[in-house]
Computed example of a mutant assay.
Amino acid sequence: MTKRIEAKTKICRRLGVNLWGRQKNPLARRDYGPGEHGQKRRKLSDYALQLAAKQKLKRYYANMSERQFRRAYEEAARLRGDTAENLIGLLERRLDTVVYRVNLAPTPFAARQLINHGHVLVNGKRVNIPSYLVREGDTIEIAERSKNHPNMLESVQHPERDVPDYISFDPKGLKAQFVRTPKLQDVPYPVQMEPNLVIEYYSR
């Protein structure tokens, strides 16, 4: 398995944004990039802007590998409709994203780990693949043996985010239902995402 977890503070500083909107924001002290040239402001080319948009979106979703992210783009391009909207819909249908959205985990990385360790059920069956795509109407819940997981309970009892309206969630039963595939405007990103630039990057 490709090692994808970098220090989250480094990711935020490199991109120049508080990517996950957390209170422990590394940019509060240094709102510029790392390294001796981090404070220099340069005018970015179109390619650089497209690359930055791709890196920001890819890293937001638990720092996906390039192979996985490109595969998501290719699938979005095959679907009917707007490719950028299709890409966002596919990313939001990922099981680790749904677990993160309903505050069963404080970060996308923690959501990935929760799933890998077999704590999550989809329609009553254990799924340990974070990239599993849920469908509209699917039920996502915590396995009975895992309902006293301390980190998960802490995250649910002290949520950092509002649950979006395209997912319903019962915090007492630790059960969610994926209601519908969202559009870009429905997704509560803490920073501006530009999937249209991502499409341009891969369409070169």
Rank of each mutant, 00 (worst) to 15 (best):
L95S: 04
R67D: 10
L174N: 02
P164R: 06
A52N: 11
R80W: 02
S131H: 03
T97L: 03
P106D: 11
K125T: 09
E74N: 13
R161K: 15
K43H: 13
R180T: 06
V102D: 05
L19S: 06
N86V: 05
R161C: 03
N18M: 08
Q113D: 08
S168D: 15
R112E: 14
N151R: 11
K175C: 07
P159I: 07
L95G: 06
R94D: 09
D162V: 13
I142W: 02
E141L: 01
K24A: 12
I129C: 03
P150L: 07
T107S: 15
L91K: 02
K10D: 14
R135T: 12
S146N: 09
L19H: 08
M193Y: 03
R67V: 13
M1V: 08
D82A: 11
R101Q: 15
V198A: 09
A111S: 15
I5P: 02
L95D: 08
N86Y: 05
E6N: 05
R30C: 04
Y201K: 10
I199K: 09
L153E: 06
T181A: 08
K58E: 06
E75M: 14
F178T: 05
V187R: 09
G81V: 00
I142A: 04
E75N: 06
E75T: 15
Q50C: 11
S131N: 08
A48R: 13
A176K: 03
I5L: 11
Q39E: 12
R70M: 06
L19G: 08
K40E: 12
R29W: 02
K10V: 12
V17H: 06
P26D: 06
L174K: 07
K172G: 05
T83M: 10
A176L: 07
Y201P: 05
A84Q: 07
L184I: 14
N123I: 01
V98F: 05
K54C: 10
V98D: 08
L153I: 14
V156H: 03
L184E: 04
K8L: 09
A72M: 13
I140K: 06
T107Y: 07
R94G: 08
Q157I: 00
K147E: 10
T139L: 12
Y132P: 02
H158K: 13
D31A: 15
Q192I: 13
E144R: 14
V122A: 00
A143M: 03
K172F: 04
G81R: 03
P171T: 01
Q39M: 14
P159E: 08
Q157G: 14
R70S: 07
L87N: 05
G81I: 07
D165M: 02
V198I: 12
E36D: 09
R42E: 12
M193W: 04
K40A: 14
L121F: 00
R93Q: 15
R78H: 09
Y100T: 03
L104I: 04
N123M: 00
P190N: 09
S146G: 05
W20C: 00
G21A: 10
L121E: 12
S45K: 07
I5C: 05
S146F: 11
N103C: 11
K58L: 11
Y100D: 02
A176H: 00
L90Y: 00
Y100K: 08
A76C: 04
E141D: 04
R70I: 02
Q39W: 12
E136A: 15
A7K: 14
